[in-house]
């Protein structure tokens, strides 16, 4: 991808700008019409601006849901209260994120960082992102969108005729099945598929994805991009397996595709990669 600013060569004029800056020229200015805060990188800010958008405010959403005692015993099937708490915490966190966005007049949130911690009795969900709005100051219509896409991805989708409309996610916690000792003994020297295990995990993964899908449908999306599937055992209950899937829901915007035919580029830098916003965040 090439982005605005990638080929930005420090020009002669920048020396003038820097000299002006050194002489304290900026002290005569009073800043913008409103103080903005954002965790976007300068590249993301530039690329957003090139499609006519700008950051408004750093916004956050958080929620904690409780998980009742006794849930983590090694039973069978899905651990529904954990799945419920997970979904609940995410839903409430998104709601407060959108609330903050509305309050500052943003049309949506890009670059949402999602942090979910599952403890024995608590699911903590925290989301932080930058609320953005068109630079022309138009009023938002409808619910603000939340998206974990970067400012670059947002601008690309925008140019390609798509709009992000929200986050979709699904999660499922399941108990690992148990094998009886006699079965385990019989199978110990064989190459054999453990079909009940396969089915249990397959089903759980499918239901996490299905929940994500039905959420996307409720948002009347046409697709979900950048889906990430995360899975693993729960630290304090190793028989419990967590599946989570999330991504950004998109829809045709009705604007024409202005991206055009891709062009191939050969980069002459050594491993030259675009600047990664994460490095600013200490990541």
């Amino acid at each position: 991808m090439s982005f605005p600013g990638d080929d930005l060569q420090p020009s002669e004029s920048i020396r003038e700008k820097v000299a002006h800056m050194a002489a304290g020229g900026y002290l005569a200015h009073t800043g913008g019409r409103r103080g903005a805060t954002s965790d976007l990188s300068i590249d993301e800010t530039l690329v957003l601006h090139s499609v006519g958008w700008e950051p408004v405010e750093l916004v956050c959403g958080a929620s904690s849901f409780s998980i009742p005692a006794g849930v983590w015993l090694w039973n069978q099937g899905e651990i529904t209260s954990a799945s419920y708490a997970y979904a609940g915490a995410l839903a409430r966190a998104v709601a407060s994120l959108q609330g903050e966005c509305r309050a500052v007049g943003g049309h949506g949130i890009v670059g949402v960082h999602l942090e979910v911690a599952v403890e024995r009795h608590l699911v903590n969900a925290v989301m932080v992102g930058s609320a953005v709005a068109p630079a022309d100051g138009s009023r938002p219509s409808g619910q603000p969108f939340a998206s974990d896409l970067s400012g670059r991805d947002f601008a690309l989708l925008h140019q390609g005729g798509w709009d992000p409309i929200g986050l979709a996610y699904g999660a499922a916690f399941v108990n690992a099945p148990r094998r009886s000792i006699s079965v385990a003994m019989r199978q110990s020297s064989q190459n054999v598929e453990l079909t009940n295990y396969t089915e249990a995990l397959y089903a759980a993964r499918e239901s996490a994805m299905e929940r994500m899908q039905s959420m996307a449908e409720r948002l009347s999306g046409q697709g979900v991009v950048g889906v990430r599937v995360s899975e693993g055992t729960v630290g304090f209950a190793r028989h419990a397996i967590r599946f989570a899937a999330w991504g950004t829901v998109i829809r045709r915007s009705g604007r024409p595709d202005r991206l055009g035919e891709p062009s191939m580029v050969v980069s002459l830098g050594d491993e030259s990669t675009a600047f990664d916003a994460a490095s600013l965040r200490g990541g």
Binding site: M1, S50, L156, L259, S263, M264, V265, V266
Partner: peptide, 17 residues
């Protein structure tokens, strides 16, 4: 902000070889 933003051209699709 000390001068109005001068929008850059919007992004294009490229494939890096």
């Amino acid at each position: 902000r000390v001068r109005p933003a001068d929008p850059l051209p919007p992004p294009k699709l490229t494939v890096r070889l």
